[in-house]
Amino acid sequence: MRPSVEKAIISGGSLALFLGIWEYSCGRLVDPMFLSSPSRVVAAGVDLVRTGEIWPDVLVSANEFIWGYLAAVAVAIPLGLFIGWNRRAQYMVQPFIDVMNAVPRITFLPILVIWFGIGIWSKLAVVFLGAVIPVTIAAYSGVKTNEARFLRVARSFGASGFKIFTSIILPGTVPFIFTGLKYGAGRALLGVVVGELYASTAGVGHMIAEAGNTLQTDVVFVGVLIFTVTGLVINGLLDRIEKRFERWRPAGARQ
């Protein structure tokens, strides 16, 4: 048997077994209120889509994720490149980045809610904070690991600072930035979930929290599943882009 076939059979089999046990035990061994079951979750999902009840929540969460993440990327990449390039700027900014990196940024949520209210702005802020740190660190360490040989060659041929930056530093940094973007996306998604669980008026996280409070376990699972699929899609997408640019990584820093 070919390994890929074997893998598909065993992976699929273990998933099917898991779903089967879950389906069987619901109502027989465990109260459906606690565990729900795959069929109920699917039914609830279909129902939410058919009535269109789910779209406003999905839209709110998508907006929070996309705009918070884009804002973080728009700030983090120039900032990371700059502090990687300019030693003094790095000395000035580094302590703040280190501190922010040491704490889960969602810890600031209560303060952000005081500042921005429980609407979309506090979520945008927490998504922004979550993603901005890993992307900045990635861009900055990308600049730092550029090969000194190239720089020396470029300098000795009289390349200007701008030329060195665009033709050596920037290309060498791209793979690092994509790695950072992947981490950042995970953090951003976490920000959406926690922000909405904590205090919100709409969003998939809000839907999960409300369904949990009203014991609609199937709806909770639908919400969790939405996040799982989103995470898988984003991860897969960025993984693929990351691999595509892997060749650009300077030889000394290949993993």
Binding site: L15, L197, T228, G231
Partner: peptide, 28 residues
């Protein structure tokens, strides 16, 4: 063979922001 059986679950758990399970865990 064990890795084939376990991997799908780990991949799914890894992709989910695990805190989304919180309302469920509180229910349990």
């Amino acid at each position: 063979l064990l890795s084939y059986a376990v991997e799908p679950f780990m991949a799914a758990l890894n992709a989910t922001p695990q805190v989304a399970f919180l309302p469920l865990i509180i229910l349990w």
